[in-house]
Amino acid sequence: MSSRDMVILSYRVNPEDFAKAGDASSNTKKVLKKLGIPSDITRRVAIVTYEAEINITIHSNGGEIIVSIDKAKIEIIARDYGPGIPDIDRAMEKGYSTASDHVREMGFGAGMGLPNMKRCSDEFQIESQKGKGTTVTSTIYIHD
């Protein structure tokens, strides 16, 4: 990548579409590999996008994931159209989950998704408005 180049990937994520959940993250990972991003960075981005994709699929009315890659950093924005997170501090606690039994049977609901995303990010932010939606922003810096 030359210093001025920027790659932007954008994916729509549908609610409860478990057949497609993971496609956005899988594609993002392949693109990062092709761009020659270091594998530890690629894995951190993969974890953040995958957890975000699953959260939008499970917990929201649908949304989108936008991944922007430039020379210095990768920014992941996961945005959905509601219902919002009533208590963000609570949601960030390890082990806290409102996932239904049905979702747990599919392998989700450990309450580790948001903590995982934070751990893998250099900068991490959640904004949420009841009824309107949630936006999670993660920034990961690329080292040489």
């Binding site: 957890e51 989700f108 450990a110 309450g111 580790m112 998704g113 995982n116």
Partner: peptide
């Protein structure tokens, strides 16, 4: 594991 976020952690 049977919970995927544990694997990711």
């Amino acid at each position: 594991a049977d919970l995927m976020s544990d694997v990711l952690a």
